[in-house]
Simulated scan of single mutants.
Amino acid sequence: MPSEDVLNLDAAGRRLYDDLAAETDPYSLTTLIVEAARTKDRLDKLDQLLRGEIETWAVLVHDLRTEDYELKINSAAAEARQLASVLRQLLAEIQRQKGDGGGPDEQSDDLAGLTGT
Rank of each mutant, 00 (worst) to 15 (best):
S3W: 05
E4A: 07
D5V: 09
D5W: 05
V6E: 15
L7A: 14
N8S: 08
N8A: 11
L9P: 15
D10F: 09
D10W: 04
D10N: 12
A11F: 10
A11R: 09
A12Q: 07
G13C: 09
L16I: 04
D19V: 07
D19W: 11
A21D: 11
A22S: 11
E23P: 01
T24I: 05
D25A: 03
D25V: 05
P26M: 03
P26Y: 02
Y27Q: 10
Y27P: 05
L29K: 06
L29M: 09
T30W: 05
T30K: 08
L32H: 04
I33C: 01
V34N: 02
E35V: 01
A36F: 00
A37Q: 00
A37E: 06
R38D: 03
D41T: 03
D41G: 03
D41K: 00
R42A: 07
R42W: 00
L43T: 04
D44E: 14
D44L: 02
K45P: 00
K45M: 02
L46Y: 07
D47Q: 11
D47H: 08
L50T: 09
L50C: 05
R51T: 07
I54T: 12
E55S: 08
T56M: 06
A58H: 11
V59W: 04
L60N: 06
L60S: 05
V61C: 00
H62P: 00
D63C: 06
D63F: 11
L64Q: 00
L64T: 05
R65S: 11
R65D: 15
R65L: 13
T66Y: 03
E67F: 07
E67I: 02
E67R: 01
D68S: 12
D68I: 02
D68K: 11
E70K: 11
E70M: 10
L71D: 07
N74V: 03
N74K: 08
N74I: 03
A76K: 08
A77K: 12
A78P: 07
E79Q: 10
A80Y: 13
A80W: 07
R81Q: 13
R81Y: 04
R81M: 08
Q82N: 10
Q82G: 08
Q82D: 14
A84L: 04
S85P: 00
L87N: 02
Q89E: 13
Q89C: 01
L91G: 07
A92G: 06
Q97E: 15
K98I: 00
G99W: 12
G99D: 09
G99I: 01
D100Y: 15
G101K: 08
G102F: 11
G102V: 09
G103C: 06
G103W: 04
G103Q: 13
P104V: 15
P104W: 05
P104I: 15
D105N: 02
E106W: 10
Q107A: 15
Q107I: 12
Q107V: 13
S108W: 08
S108V: 14
D109H: 12
D110M: 14
L111W: 13
L111H: 12
G113M: 09
G113F: 12
T115V: 15
T115A: 14
T115R: 14
G116C: 09
T117V: 12
